[in-house]
Design a binder for these strands. Structure first.
Lengths: 201, 201
DNA sequence: ATACTTTTATTAACACCGTTAACAAAAGTA
DNA sequence: TACTTTTGTTAACGGTGTTAATAAAAGTAT
């Protein structure tokens, strides 16, 4: 009897219809405004049915997070396959990573826990400029004292800040509390490379 | 008459008592669970009084964000002052940045919009390992083909990913939509530096 | 076809949340 | 003392995630 199979199939269809409605929501209004109630409304069912398919709201978001990592992995894999020299692969993968992040912004934000509502106006914060100027002035000085004083200091500032922020936030996502001293070697490695890239081109 | 002065002073005290109660909340349960109602409960006043001092909840969080950037700026400034050579300053500031982030995790998360509740279990995601292994294998290959095959590939992987994530998330915080081609030069710069650091030590 | 069981869906509620209008009380001013 | 302004409260609106109790539908056995 195909009843059991049909039931499983229908369950699966229902599940994906929930995810589709949810994703529609995420795309149009961002993951912040995703709500179980709106999903229920979109699929024209009552609220509790959603809990027959997902333990809670977090489980739905987690589903997209997984999807995101899978998509990223696929992208990286296919880009990598187009080159043979490892350093070329790394470069191409870096660009692919960048493109993925901005072409699938919603995925990326979910994957890396980005985007507190309160902080979308971070650019307007005066205190930010204060911290920025300290870093920029130092980098400027470093460049002027190097063998390539024509280097774009603003570019180097962004690189510097990005390395720092990347190191910190990746570490913060992965671990609770302050990471051990060994982890700080990553910082040392990245910063050394950065400083070398300024001093000798 | 000192009445006006006292009123201003009392207003200011009230304001800081709100912020203190809020911060207590943030420290003990994270900024996600900060609520106007709990603040009101903590200061033993009714809910609407808070709106006499802050436009909304976001304004309270923004206050801490500003505080965070100010603290970071102060830290960087004082660390910078301890050195004279720019490259040494940059290195010391990098370590200070790292320490600040983990010593004031709540501030840092607010400042850079980190921490979606759904994504604290990102490590358990199987799909993540898939993407990870692709990057690691490439870096491994690059290292093996370099003049320093003994280099720690795991360290280099973290550096690689951190640079990428840092670039992306900083860019995402600052701008809407996909950044222009000029911004991608930052990526090119950082990745070139990274690859050079692998090829010749 | 009827009686029973299991699955599925619904209603209604609980306990929260941010925000605000209407109103009462206190404080300051004339 | 009478009036005005400031300050605080109650109660509500509309929203959230989640769940217990219950009704309806679907499948299974006799």
């Amino acid at each position: 009897m195909g009843i059991a199979e049909r039931k499983i199939r229908q369950r699966e269809e229902f599940r994906t219809s929930i995810l589709e409605a949810a994703w529609q929501q995420v795309i149009s209004d961002g993951w912040q405004s995703l709500s179980i109630r709106k999903i229920a409304d979109a699929i024209e069912y009552s609220i509790p049915v959603i809990y027959n398919h997902f333990e809670n709201k977090e489980a739905i978001l987690l589903e997209f997070t997984k999807e995101g990592f899978q998509k990223l992995a696929d992208t990286l894999q296919s880009v990598k396959a187009q080159y043979t020299v490892p350093s070329e692969q790394l470069e191409a993968m870096a660009h692919a990573y960048w493109d993925f992040a901005f072409d699938h912004k919603e995925y990326y934000q979910l994957m890396f826990g980005l985007g507190i509502p309160a902080c979308d106006r971070v650019n307007e914060i005066e205190e930010l400029k204060c911290a920025t100027s300290i870093m920029i002035s130092t980098i400027k000085a470093a460049i002027e004292g190097s063998s390539h004083p024509e280097t774009d200091y603003f570019l180097k500032y962004h690189t510097y800040l990005s390395i720092l922020h990347g190191l910190v936030s990746i570490q913060m996502i992965q671990k609770e509390g302050k990471p051990d001293a060994a982890k700080k070697m990553i910082l040392q490695d990245a910063i050394s490379g950065f400083i070398i890239s300024i001093n000798r081109k």
